[in-house]
Design a protein around this nucleic acid. Structure first.
Lengths: 244, 244
DNA sequence: GAAAATTTGTCCGTATGTATT
DNA sequence: AAATACATACGGACAAATTTT
């Protein structure tokens, strides 16, 4: 297969196109048998570029901690995983991650009480001008950030949710303490865009990287909205599954 | 807001980073009131680059048919929509698109009978070496391609599905004729990656563009797998919603 | 153990693309 | 429109480390 062309003069450097392709191949498990990437000369032939260009691509992947080059041996694959996020009626953010990553947690980075925007009010079915509690979190697994999210809660029912969540680290427990015995995922919306400035720093991404954005609504068992969240995931670190 | 910095020396040209941001803003509806993009000088100030660089970005978007610059007036937004694809137990590919786009159809571009790969056999729960029917389709809406998909069906049950689908244009009808009264979506997997060579041509994308890939399994009412599909969607034209 | 082949690391120079002034 | 500076990409040659013969 000597014909996986890359395109020139498109505003995306060849080495970056190649880095993205190799990263995708690694994630797809194409090199699992060998445990390493093909030799630089083979990749150069495959993509139709000079070996130096392939080296630039591999250097970028090395910077991300995905591969490690060893002189004389080859370029070894260091890390190759994609966290799976199941989405269902019973979706809980932290649940289901623990068995995939050794170290997984979500940290609260900011919180405030504010007036709901038109979008937030619409999703939470609140009157215009109603107050909401906003929580900003960053989710990490195995020492890498995987998501940054913002959640809004109706302030009248959940005034103290920030404190309880900060103490327990669990939305489910916080809801429980505030009288919500159980809650369900009503709807989840998924889109994908290029990373923005905040993503680059919070998720440790490079420009051109992809973020998958979810907009999710949770409601109590009476169908009353209790939480609206917008989360941004580093696309090359996650996968969503919807099981019916 | 004079500080949406773009990053230099990252392998992605500034004009392409800016083009991607403006495209995302348009899709998000940021400029809906005016119906046009801010003036070049304002964008240059906002992104911290020279006006020439912004012009390169807008020229690229013009090439895609998203904006149109008019001397003396500004840069008008030509096209701005995102098709919604609902995912549920009753997910039907074509259903739900008709009310969003005037012209929507899926065309069969290739078909073959082949031996199932390890991946396909695993999903369809077939014995190794079993035969499958493969269908390749391209989905279009309003004269734009939005998806390219490959579906596999067990050959023993659905030997003639290609012919029937080609005649009726409906998988549901083809299933019905072949004795499958009803079927349900068992699981859907969603990931996002950069566009590959085939995506660029089939979906009319430019390098660096994003594709969302779904892997979906349909089964009959007895739980027997009947269809496994991998579909690739142009990310800036679609949105997925999961309703529980 | 020695030699050969393989693979990554480094240096040179040149041409073209990108971005600013 | 033109001049300048830097990033990107290519081509070749050789060194250094490792594996294979």
């Amino acid at each position: 297969m000597a014909g996986q062309k890359v395109q020139r003069q498109t505003g995306v450097a060849l080495w970056r196109q190649i880095a993205d392709r190799i990263r995708a191949s690694i994630n797809q498990g194409d090199f699992d048998e060998a445990g390493m990437v093909p030799p630089e000369t083979a990749l150069a032939l495959q993509f139709g570029v000079n070996r130096h260009t392939v080296r630039s691509a591999l250097a970028a992947l090395g910077q991300e901690g995905i591969v490690r080059a060893v002189q004389g041996r080859g370029t070894l694959i260091e890390r190759k995983e994609r966290l799976n996020f199941p989405i269902s009626k019973r979706t809980r953010f932290s649940q289901g991650i623990g068995d995939q990553a050794r170290e997984a947690r979500s940290v609260l980075v900011a919180t405030s009480r504010e007036i709901a925007s038109a979008e937030v009010a619409r999703w939470l079915k609140l009157a215009p001008g109603a107050a909401v509690i906003r929580l900003e979190t960053i989710g990490r697994a195995d020492h890498r950030p995987v998501s940054r999210g913002t959640s809004w809660f109706p302030a009248d029912r959940f005034a103290d949710i920030a404190e309880i969540y900060g103490a327990t680290g669990s939305i489910t427990k916080a809801f429980h303490e505030l009288g919500v015995a159980d809650y369900v995922r009503v709807v989840t919306e998924i889109t994908a865009t290029h990373a923005e400035e905040g993503d680059l720093t919070d998720l440790e991404l490079s420009p051109g990287a992809i973020v998958m954005t979810t907009r999710a609504l949770n409601a109590d068992l009476d169908g009353v909205p209790v939480q609206y969240s917008i989360s941004r995931f580093a696309a090359d670190r996650v996968r969503f599954t919807i099981e019916n």
